[in-house]
Nucleic acid binder design. Sequence first.
DNA 1: GTGGTCTAGACCACG
DNA 2: GTGGTCTAGACCACC
Lengths: 121, 121, 121, 121
Amino acid sequence: MILIDYQDARPIYEQIVEKFEKLIVRGILEPDSQMPSVRSLAMELSINPNTIQKAYAELERRGYLYSVKGRGNYVAFNDRLKNKKKEELLAKFLALKNEAQELGISKEEIAAFFEEEENHD
Amino acid sequence: MILIDYQDARPIYEQIVEKFEKLIVRGILEPDSQMPSVRSLAMELSINPNTIQKAYAELERRGYLYSVKGRGNYVAFNDRLKNKKKEELLAKFLALKNEAQELGISKEEIAAFFEEEENHD
Amino acid sequence: MILIDYQDARPIYEQIVEKFEKLIVRGILEPDSQMPSVRSLAMELSINPNTIQKAYAELERRGYLYSVKGRGNYVAFNDRLKNKKKEELLAKFLALKNEAQELGISKEEIAAFFEEEENHD
Amino acid sequence: MILIDYQDARPIYEQIVEKFEKLIVRGILEPDSQMPSVRSLAMELSINPNTIQKAYAELERRGYLYSVKGRGNYVAFNDRLKNKKKEELLAKFLALKNEAQELGISKEEIAAFFEEEENHD
DNA sequence: GTGGTCTAGACCACG
DNA sequence: GTGGTCTAGACCACC
């Protein structure tokens, strides 16, 4: 389910965080379903449990997980979080649009690009 | 011309690289114009010359600079580089669009967002 | 009567302790009335009986319960306990007031806040 | 400047976080002043650098610190943060007031208690 | 068994 | 020198 890319410059725990964030956002991991245990996932990926722990702590901080001592970690994606994620994405769109305009790419060019890609799918 | 934000988590040399990249892409620094010398810029920003050196080396690697031994560093922005930059940007757009669709945001919603923002400028 | 919040970071037994403490302090559970048995409550909440046992032991330690061997656990709220609880609360108020003053919030500001909230109820 | 209480049930890193939060909020540590380095503070308190690291990371997350790689950690308290802290405090006051009323303590009783303490200072 | 904290020791990037 | 990441191994509380 999770693959670590050791060529990737980003720290391992961050890769894990983002992989799980995607899985949760896409709904592949359903709310209230149990996450793999810190130890078992560490074994599976053959990395240190502390690294998984750090990743889970960050996911909890971001609201994608809640942990119950002695039980495990559980998925906690809800509508509030979904909207937050949506806003983040739209903010990125806006930033990118501004950058594009500075380079002299018109709004029409972007739109055209969108339509074009549509046909490749 | 260049301001370092110490609150920014990114390394200083990277901030400098991106600032100069923007200045060059926007045409504020014209092709073949001379860059400030490593030592003078280091003095001006009161940081280590090694940091400037590293930034310039990275800019050269990316093709935005060429250095002439004993004379200094010069801006090297051309059409090939501009197109490369353009493609990078459009690739980012596509990635973002895919991410948005996975979250269930429709193409129309993005377009609507664009129009809306247009009026705020 | 008791609801466990698994999103709550606190251990389950502690949540149970505090819920019962509130119920007893407010007088919803009357003195000398019988508590649900360890096993029945464990069943009802579908958690481990050990967890209930631990919660009851803690409640007894704090003076809110007394247990009769072979018969069950009974509520034990009295005036002495009520005064103790009152003092605890006032001590918290004082600590909070001190903290507020260190931040530069005046006594008047707090009082004003109190009045304001009164109207929202 | 910082003292660890090993009798305290709370984790060491959390004690450190709260101590520094207080020092920063009270203005004892001034904005943009340098924090002790991870290693030196670890030596001074004779605890592991990782524990300090964790504390500093949490302080950064809460906005009280910013860190510059290769340079150190710096205090980052500003007005926005001050207001946030203020709101937190007032929310606590409200919660406490509600709890007191459930116990049958009147607003007047609390006010009287405040005045009384005033004279002890 | 579970998560959470801590230590000891190492390596890397940054300046 | 600085902060940041990672490993290995230990201990605790909780269930």
